Amino acid sequence: MPSVLVGDDHPVVRAAVKMVLKEEGFKQIYEASSGNEVLSIVREHSPDLVVLDLVMPGGDGLDVLARIHASQVPCRVLVFTSQEPMFYQDRCMRAGAAAYVAKTNTLQHLHKAVHAVMAGYTYFAQLPCASVSLNTLQLSEKQMIDTLSDRELAIFQHLARGMSNKVIADIMHLSHKTVSTYKTRLIEKLNVEASVHLRDFAKRNHLI
């Protein structure tokens, strides 16, 4: 009997995902509301499938994904998130995900992704060709964002949401000084004049 873990910090989302999974024949469904819980349940129960959000307390989603992959537990990971596919789908593929579904899609896409993954296939959206769909400014900014490491991208989003260095340090288990260093590096890499402009940059690229 296949088992599945739903990792999402929103109870309403978990309930909707569980409905889809029950329709797909899953009887054993575990739930987690933080990255640490996800990793703990994966280690303890080795579910066949993990439906994972990228934005949860207790661990950056990409880091959680990479740690699941590194643990060598034979489970497949389907990322179900509100994060922009243009910036996250390829990163998730590289980190070991078998599927990526944006929450802006209908639940039918989630049905199809679950079905594909459990049949041994992958499920990823066909992203529009950058040269056609993006204007010059957006293309240039996407190229800058693509140069960021997963940790830099996570810190960038936290800063753009207005979090202080101290709060980010606590969330990501880093020192205040390390976050400050990342902040300086981000300002340089993204070619913005000051941290206040990081929010505009993130909003323009649908990262917050």
Rank of each mutant, 00 (worst) to 15 (best):
Phe87Pro: 02
Ala194Thr: 14
Ser164Met: 10
Phe124Gln: 01
Leu54Val: 08
Leu39Val: 12
Leu49Arg: 01
Leu207Asn: 01
Asn165His: 12
Val51Leu: 07
Lys22Thr: 10
Thr181Gly: 11
Ala154Leu: 03
Leu21Ser: 00
Arg204Met: 10
Val73Leu: 08
Pro57Phe: 09
Lys142Gly: 00
Val77Asn: 03
His69Lys: 15
Tyr182Val: 09
Phe87Tyr: 15
Ile155Asp: 01
Thr184Asn: 15
Cys129Asp: 12
Ser195Gln: 13
Ile187Phe: 10
Ala97Phe: 05
Arg161Val: 01
Ser82Cys: 13
Ile41Trp: 05
Thr136Tyr: 02
Thr122Arg: 11
Ser40Glu: 14
Leu137Arg: 06
Ser33Pro: 02
Met93Ile: 12
Lys177Pro: 00
Lys112Thr: 10
His173Met: 12
Lys177Met: 09
Val64Lys: 05
Val4Glu: 06
Arg14Tyr: 06
Val20Met: 04
Tyr182Glu: 07
Ala99Val: 03
Val196Lys: 14
Val17Phe: 07
Thr81Val: 09
Val20Cys: 06
Asp48His: 14
Arg199Val: 02
Tyr182Leu: 12
Val4Gly: 04
Ala97Leu: 06
His206Lys: 14
Leu49Trp: 03
Val132Phe: 07
Val55Arg: 12
Pro85Gly: 10
Leu190Met: 06
Phe87Val: 08
Tyr100Ser: 01
Thr104Glu: 12
Leu148Met: 04
Tyr121Ile: 03
Ser175Pro: 08
Phe26Asn: 00
Met172Ser: 04
Met56Tyr: 03
Tyr123Met: 03
Ser71Tyr: 13
Glu193Ser: 15
Tyr100Glu: 02
Ser3Val: 14
Val51Gly: 01
Ala102Trp: 06
Gly61Met: 12
Val55Pro: 02
Phe156Gln: 01
Tyr123Leu: 01
Glu84Phe: 12
Leu198Glu: 00
Ile41Phe: 10
Val132Asp: 04
Gln157Arg: 15
Leu65Ala: 10
Asp60Ser: 08
Tyr123Thr: 01
Ile41Pro: 04
Ser3Thr: 15
Gln83Phe: 13
His45Met: 11
Lys112His: 14
Asp9Ser: 13
His206Val: 07
Met163Phe: 15
Val167Gln: 11
Lys183His: 10
Arg14Gly: 07
Ser175Glu: 12
Gln83Ser: 13
Gly25Tyr: 05
